[in-house]
Structure formats: structure tokens, C-alpha cells
Design a protein around this nucleic acid. Sequence first.
DNA 1: ATTAGAAGCGCAAACGTTTGCGCAAAATTG
DNA 2: CAATTTTGCGCAAACGTTTGCGCTTCTAAT
Lengths: 337, 337
Amino acid sequence: MAQKNTLHTLSELTGYAVSTVSRVLTGQAKKYRISAEAESLITREAQRLNYQPNLVAQSLRTQKSQTIGLLVPGIENPFFATLSGIVIGLLRSRGYHTIMADSQESEQEEAASLRMFQGRNVDGIICIPVSQTPALHDEVSRQIPMVLIDRYFRETTLPYVCTDNFEGARCASAFLLEKGYRRILAIQGVPASMPNQERVRGFQAALASGDATGEVAGDAFSVENGYRQTLAAFQDGQRPYDAIFAFSSTILLGVIDALRTLGLRPPRDLGVISFDNNGFLDFVDPAVTRIEQPLREAGEIAVDTLFSIIDARRRGLPEPPLRQLLIPPTLVVRDSC
Amino acid sequence: MAQKNTLHTLSELTGYAVSTVSRVLTGQAKKYRISAEAESLITREAQRLNYQPNLVAQSLRTQKSQTIGLLVPGIENPFFATLSGIVIGLLRSRGYHTIMADSQESEQEEAASLRMFQGRNVDGIICIPVSQTPALHDEVSRQIPMVLIDRYFRETTLPYVCTDNFEGARCASAFLLEKGYRRILAIQGVPASMPNQERVRGFQAALASGDATGEVAGDAFSVENGYRQTLAAFQDGQRPYDAIFAFSSTILLGVIDALRTLGLRPPRDLGVISFDNNGFLDFVDPAVTRIEQPLREAGEIAVDTLFSIIDARRRGLPEPPLRQLLIPPTLVVRDSC
DNA sequence: ATTAGAAGCGCAAACGTTTGCGCAAAATTG
DNA sequence: CAATTTTGCGCAAACGTTTGCGCTTCTAAT
């Protein structure tokens, strides 16, 4: 069985008190005027034993954990996976660890995870919210700095950094109209989520100004949903739409699959446009015209914002100005419409 | 500022001792014969205050954490992201939380992460190893149950569950040969990693039996690597190979991209085959023939194995039989060769 | 009327740190 | 040489739990 080395064992081995050992190992030797002799003896012994401080005890004592909680609604979705990867990397480069939770789009799970974060003394939370009301988030964020990413609440005092989904959807829709499409089917994701609502709004705003018609269907950011909705719309050889606007790349895959089943081929038979960045979209046949979101930038801003709050609270300073940001996405034109 | 509720505050509010409160809230009321009256009062008050036990203190005291450490070599790779998602989900369904670390293919980072897991009292570790020698892993695993997934050490007493990469690569190569391809370029990932080495072996084993020739190039599981190697191989209009075997879906994307640049089109101009499962591969033009790995099954076995060890150690039982598993992958035939 | 057992609960130690305070010895000063 | 300061380090409390043990009080049995 491996050794369980504590300050106490080091104390016994070196003959110095636990407190002295602690001060040496936390680099406070100078500050507390520990002799060079003691310092080198202790560090040497710590090296030899591969001493690893018990982070749990440390955290209990200092009320910090060098850990950030990351809450996403479904890690299996490549969009969230990519975003998570970016955030985890950024946190790591700041010396912070990440504890991940997955709410699976469930408010229950979300609440449980937030509570768990509280109980774990995480130093901050980055959250893609699922719930409709910010009550719990507000409460938790009074104790632990939190910033929202990708989704946000309409009226909230929580900082957030999200894509300007309204503008993105408007822009995508306008592009379709410009290309001459007139009957557009938008296949949406989770209807209650803010990005989705904004995309619906953007879609409708673009339609409002012209003579085109549009409809919204669907209920999940999933391949299945894309498949199902497309099949349903084009059943019996009908062609009620001449373009499809998929609200995510997962939905898009379902659409493409369904179109193949139906024997329809974009852009010949109808136009297709999507949301989300995903390198794979360039390799789909045909390469998909899409709205790309600045994920890395969003991640960076979110992490920055989070740490500025953490920092301010630690030093007892007033909270930094509330940062609520909508980053404009960009249209990437390819061959699908 | 939000309330910081501890057993102590509940104790004061209800008039019962901290220990009583603790026992009630951990469901030990019967066991310790706490009166129904006390129990209901305490639970009621805990509800009202939204009491959330301090998991850090709990963990320090009980030496458990309800947390598993997950170490991957690069979360941005969709393959690892998918696998992570599966594992996180499985752990969650067992009531365990996940703390994720990313070694970025660096031994240094890997070591730091494993030490971090130790310091955090995680109850178990699931690891995709990066290091070449199992020394540290062996040491850590004496203290904390660990199972390897996806990659393993050649001679190790650590349990693992991985794809049978030799067989997968052999099978893919054999398929190419069968289709008549004779000059094959294999573009590999991280050369030192076990799956990669096994794939190289499988590739060479398949070639050995016939009259075909093959070469191995590349050094990373990345899109760039695939792109670079393909371009380098086919420069100056040369056609030294009639098929490419990409060792991962990321590499594959680079290959496809390069082929487009070069004006070559599979399967007409040459055959292409890949490793990895990734739903997107069906939507690439042309749909990619590939070796799919049973990710979910692997995740399930890994988690099962881990908990069987955790369980055995907790109850002081002997370790369960060492489980070292190679799961055979499956060939999925599409249109790229 | 004593006593044994049960019922109901509290004391205090322990988990491994960090840190304010204090104390003795050595060094410096007047 | 006495008084003061500096040097070097240890004591013990605290973070919030869990849990072995033991202390009362009550009931019931002898």
C-alpha cells in the first residue's frame, strides 16, 4: 500500500513542527524566517517521499479549491464538448482544475449540480444554464462567482457571454432570401433555451420584411430531431419548402440524412443552412453554409470575467462592472445553398 | 451574501447537538434512535435553509469523495470528447462526480494530474495514459483504484479495456488489399501511443502476407497532420500510393482536405479508409469506410471494473481478478474505397 | 424499592491543513 | 551589563464533518 504522507510524517522525520513544515512547503520560509538549514532539510525530505499535500484538507482550511465548476447540458453534443475543451484548457493554464457536471437539459440535475458545486467550495462556476428562472443561479452566485456562457436569462444580473443568436439567425435567413428561397423550414433545438428563442426571433424578423414564408418545427439539438422533422415535412413526395435552416450541426446531420432517404440533394433540390461551427461541416456533401460562433473568444471572455470577479471578491473590492456580452457570429458561405 | 449553513447553525437553530443533526441528515436516525420529533424538526429546518453539506469537510473526514478522476490526453479531440461524455454519464448514474484533467499528451501534465487526483482523495481514476512507463501509474494505483481505457502499457498489472487495434488495423488493411489496392500510405497518430503502435503492427501484418507495399508517416492525431502528410506524399503530381489509411477521423479530415486541394477524388482516384467512430463520417463526401470502436461498451466495462475494485478494497476483500480486455472493433463499409 | 436495560442524545477526537500568536534564545544596542 | 530587538520556531485553534463512546433519564422487571 502506498504511503500516505502528511505534514505530520514530515514533521516526525525532520524533527520540525508541522507548522514549520507547512510554511516551508508553501514557500513562506522567508516570511517566517525559517533557517536555510531547516528549509533544505524539509524540502529534501518532501521530495524524497513524493509528498503531495492533501488538497481536501487544504481546501477546507483555506476555503479555496483551485477548482472551477463547469456545467453543461449534454457533453455528448460536439458543440458543448468543444466549448468544454476550450474552457478546461483556459482554466488549466491559469492553474485551475475543472470539475464537470452534465445537466442533461434537466432542471433537476442542474440544481443538484449547482448545489454540489457549492458543497465543494469551488472558486467559481461557468454555466450553460438550462432552467428558465434564474432564482437558484442568483442565489448560488451570491456565494460563488458565476458566469453564464452560450445561454443566458433574459433579465438577470448574472454576467454572460453568448453568441448574438438573433443576429446570426437573421443573417442566415436573409442570406437564404437573397438567394431566392421563399418557403423556409427552420428546425429548432430546445425551444425553451434562450439561444433557440433568439434564433426563432431572428428567423421571423428576416421573414417579416419580405414575401417569403417560414415555419418552425422541432424540439431538440439532436440528429434524430433533424431527421424526423425533415421526413415529416417532405412526406408523400410533397415539397412544401425550398430551404431548410438547421439550428445546430447535429440537427443538420439529421436533415442531410433524411434528404438522402428522400432522394433530395442540396443545393439542387433545395437550400440548406446551419448553425454552429464544426470543422466537419466543410466535409459534408455538399459543404454546408453556416453561421459560425466565436467559441474560443467566448470562452476566453467568460474565463476572464469569472476571474475578475473572483479576484475582486477575494480582495474585498467592489464587483467589477457587470459584463453581459453578445458576440456577433459570422456567416460562412459554402455550397449548400 | 448567501448563507453559509453548517451543521453548527442547524444545531443552534434546533437546539440539538451537531452530532444529532449529522446523524439525522445522513439518514442514521433509526440506527441511533433519534426521536421522530427531533428528526422531523431537523429535516424541516434543513429544508428551509437549503442546507447543503460541505463535501470538502465530509471528504476529509470520511476519506471518500464520491468523485472519480478522468484523465484524457486532449479533450478537443472528438474521439476523447465522446468517450469522456460516455464515462461522465455512467459515473453520474452511479452517483459519482467527475473531475477532468487534460494531459495534452504530455507526461509532465499527466504526472501532475495524477498527483492532483491523489491529493483530492478521488475514489478512483479512469485514465488514458500518455506516459511510456507505468511506474507512476502503478504507484498511484496502489493507493487509488485505477483502470486504463483506450491505451495501455504493454506489461502492466493495471486493468485496462481497449480496442483491439492490431486486429482493427489488420482488418482495414486486408479490406484495402482485397479491393485491389497495392500501394498504401498509413498516416499515423502519436507514434509512442499503444493504439498507434498496434495499428502499425496490424497494418504491417496484413501487408506481409501479400505483394502490396505500404509506408507509415505522420505523428499526431490531428487534422493538420493528415493534411500535411497527404500533401507531402502526392506533391509534384506524383501518385506514389493508391490508398490511404488514416489512423483517426481527425487525420482523415486532413486527408480529404488535401485530396481536394490536389484535385484527387476518392474512391475514383484512390481508396481511403479510416479509424474511429464519428457519426460525421457518414456525411463526408464520399462516406468513409472505417473501423468503428465500441466506445460505449468500453466505457461501461471500464466503469464496472473500476467500481468492482473500489468495492473490494472498501470491504477489505481481495482484489477482483485482473481484467485486461481487448475489444474487437468492427469494419463499417461505405463508399470511400 | 432497587436494578437492568433501553431510549435519546451529547462530548470530543479525528481527518490534514493553515496561521495568529507567543516564547525562548541569540544578536544587537545603549 | 542590562535592555531591547531580531531570529527561529512551536502551540493550538480553526475549517465542517463523522463517529466511538458514554452520560442521563425513563421504563419495566425483579
